[in-house]
Design a protein around this nucleic acid. Structure first.
Lengths: 348, 348
DNA sequence: CTGAAAGCGCTTACAG
DNA sequence: CTGAAAGCGCTTACAG
């Protein structure tokens, strides 16, 4: 009577054994049939008592918790990627699982990762997801379960599954969008760190150019810090002499595009009339709110989060596509283009 | 040998009983002393085996999990508030707890809330935090534990604790900042829904005016949708005839300020020379990135998240200040002003 | 100082 | 069709 009611309390009230209660409450069990009247009695008793199974007891016995561990580097500095978390949680809930989330800080120190993992393992999580807010490589820590999935991250060793955006294809599509509008001098305002995303997007940029037989002009590939101020400085691209000046700029991300808008405005030019711009991320509160609204590539955070859970739960049906890579498998998720008003034909 | 090592395995290897292992591994127990050599032997065995306690078994026995449930409405649509979650998780980790997070969608339906709570309770969480991404009132669901804390939300009944930003005081400070710069015609560009934040910030606005003996001019209080486009429309305030036009505008949030900047620019005016602006939220990637950077009131999300965990864990030392309210208690956290470059003296 | 035993709340062969 | 019993991996009086 002190705490919450247990199976035994329900059994007593229904006048049956705990075995029967357990069987009834857990649905049919192979070969075991309980007649409807008994079932009814049990259900009534459970309801009356407000019985809720103790998942720790159940988990102990079944040797599995209905919980998934979600380790991420940092949830706060890059708010737009949290939809991975939200989607993962929703998918977990849909499958009667709960999500333990733990942040390990940025950059993630291996010992902190290790501790987080140990703690999760002690709590008997049935699966682990290791997420990063920015696409990057991560070194698996010792004794990480085989079933662990890396989200928005690629495992550098082991035979794990990794889920990442199809950066290269997306960058190619972004630049192709510009090409199709008639642009031929297209700059890439790149991030100045050697992130995996930067390399891949640059590749995609080159791919698209090659497709149109355009020789890349090194002056049109500039690297700046990936924030608004870097974007403002990217405005210098416009100061190039007439024939060399780009008519369109593909930005590494939306924040740089936001800065670039400023640089363009300060020079008295207009987007998209004088210059077309394509961003990357479709960052909330930014891309759609710029003036004019920014055409950009959407990072499929929700799809990625959902796929991670489907994968660790052995469900993955929604976005098939795993390909071998290193010892493991990788899934590249498409980044759809979001067309808004920052792209037009080049001025003549 | 199949699964992970248990206490029994450690006991065997160390040549002692499980009782001894348990006592050693859990630190001193009152009245029980194990001689150092034995302790040493046990620790060695545990290390060698890579023993990790099974928290489900421990929890079952101790009748407490080391887990806290964090229920929030939506984590994705309002990315800036996720630092509440991050801070809560960090504080939980600091106290050897894990955080279960579950989203219940927005607006949160009572039945979904109920299910989330049930699931968390089944998992034997030792405490519950109910968070909202925007400050609002929430109806506790039936049988919610007494110790539940409402975060960025006020419980409408019961004797719960609620943690919210000190909106009114913050709005007052925001307007006072303008007053101190010499402004006397100050508008409030308000949200057009009847949220609790809107009401409170309006109060604070009136408080500050009253402090300077300024009669509020109803034409200077306008309500618009709380996004960028609402902010743009707020620019109409500037179209008021000369003597009635405000020299400064206090915005309900940073996104409206972002829109207002646009409205001001389109009219060929400059901030802060022609108009001073103060925002609210200190939203990441917005406030500091506007041109000029926006002076605004910072919502203390991290402090709130941390306090919530401290409170449910019975620790709260860091931000004392609970006051009675209704049947429960409330803690109002200060929103510090973040001075940037959008405030100057009024033009003459 | 150390261990045998009971018990946390379940599930699951197994027997009747 | 139904129940007694064992056991999941711990902790904690209690006895020796």
């Amino acid at each position: 009577m002190t705490g919450r009611p247990t199976l035994k309390d329900v059994a007593q009230r229904a006048g049956v054994s705990v075995t029967t209660v357990s069987v009834v409450l857990n649905g049919q069990r192979a070969g075991v049939r309980v007649p409807e009247p008994t079932r009814e009695r049990v259900r009534k008793a459970a309801d009356a008592l407000g019985y809720r199974p103790n998942q720790m007891a159940r988990g102990l016995r079944r040797r599995t918790s209905q919980a998934i561990g979600f380790i991420s580097d940092e949830v706060t500095t890059t708010p737009f990627a949290v939809s991975m978390l939200a989607a993962a949680q929703e998918e977990a809930a849909r499958n009667d699982h709960l999500l333990f989330v733990v942040n390990v800080g940025k950059p993630a120190r291996p010992d902190v990762m290790q501790r987080a993992m140990d703690s999760l393992v002690e709590h008997q999580v049935s699966a682990l997801i290791v997420a990063r807010m920015y696409h990057q490589e991560v070194e698996p820590v010792a004794s990480m379960p085989e079933s662990t999935v890396f989200l928005n991250a690629r495992a550098t060793s082991g035979s794990y599954r990794s889920i990442v955006p199809a950066e290269r294809a997306a960058a190619r599509a972004a630049v192709r969008e510009l090409l199709e509008h008639g642009h031929r001098r297209i700059a890439f305002l790149d991030d100045d760190t050697n992130t995996i995303a930067s390399g891949l997007r640059h590749q995609g940029y080159l791919d698209a150019l090659a497709e149109y037989d355009i020789a890349p002009d090194p002056r049109l590939h500039v690297r700046m810090p990936s924030g608004v101020s870097g974007g403002v400085r990217g405005g210098e691209l416009i100061d190039l002499p007439a024939g060399q000046r780009p008519t369109a700029i593909f930005c590494f991300n939306d924040r740089m595009a936001m800065g670039l808008y400023r640089g363009v405005r300060h020079r008295g030019l207009k987007i998209p009339d004088d210059l077309s711009v394509v961003g990357f991320d479709d960052q909330e509160f930014i891309a759609s709110e710029l003036d004019p609204p920014l055409t950009t590539m959407r990072l499929p955070h929700r799809e990625m989060g959902r796929l991670a859970v489907e994968s660790v739960l052995g469900l993955d049906t929604s976005y098939a596509g795993w390909t071998e890579q290193g010892g493991g498998e990788i899934s590249l998720l498409e980044c759809p283009i979001v067309r808004r008003d920052s792209v037009a034909s080049p001025p003549d």
